[in-house]
Design a protein around this nucleic acid. Sequence first.
DNA 1: GTCGATGTTCGATTTTCTTCGAACTTTCTC
DNA 2: GAGAAAGTTCGAAGAAAATCGAACATCGAC
Lengths: 104, 104
Amino acid sequence: MKSYRHPALRSVTLPVVMQALSDPWRLKIVRLMLEAGDRAFTCSDVPMDVGKATRSHHFQVLREAGLIRMRPVGNTCQTTLRREEFEKRFPGLLAMVAAYKGRR
Amino acid sequence: MKSYRHPALRSVTLPVVMQALSDPWRLKIVRLMLEAGDRAFTCSDVPMDVGKATRSHHFQVLREAGLIRMRPVGNTCQTTLRREEFEKRFPGLLAMVAAYKGRR
DNA sequence: GTCGATGTTCGATTTTCTTCGAACTTTCTC
DNA sequence: GAGAAAGTTCGAAGAAAATCGAACATCGAC
């Protein structure tokens, strides 16, 4: 596995985060991880109806938006939310995402 | 002036809101209005380095994301945030946007 | 009524996303 | 080592978004 580049949260801008969360698949990933507490996921743990190239791309976008941390473990990528750091930079954002209940 | 269509907040989804706020100009508009309390703006009140067609487009996107309310007054459009409604649907989002301090 | 200002709409262009398949690398298992 | 599994990378194709200029409509002022 490759090792991943993670941006410092200070350098992440709000438009970039908003862009990352504007895609339904990526929003789903983040919400799944929010629900799952601090459990780590691999890319293929997240059910998505797209090819693996696309899946890889979405994880990359989330990573570059400072939302997730990816660590190579064996031939998988262990992925977790960057909760505390992210919360410091964008207070309340994750809570809002977690509270969101879809179309009403 | 035309009269505008405003979506019910119930029908607005989070990805649509995120998409609306992922553009720097639109984020600027919203932040300007957040700072300005309940004062109404016209489109040309907001300094933006784009043509008026583009400006009109950005206001439309914000309107369709449920963020702003536009009312024709004379030959201008009086624009205000849909604060309370929006806050009910996406609690904490506007506060987070208001608190955002740019790149650090 | 004519003019200037404010916006909107339309069509076209450019840029940015999303998605895919194919080829590749790394790692685990047999 | 051979084969399978998990991801990544690399184009390429298609869809969506941003931007503009030009034409248009509406309103206020003169």
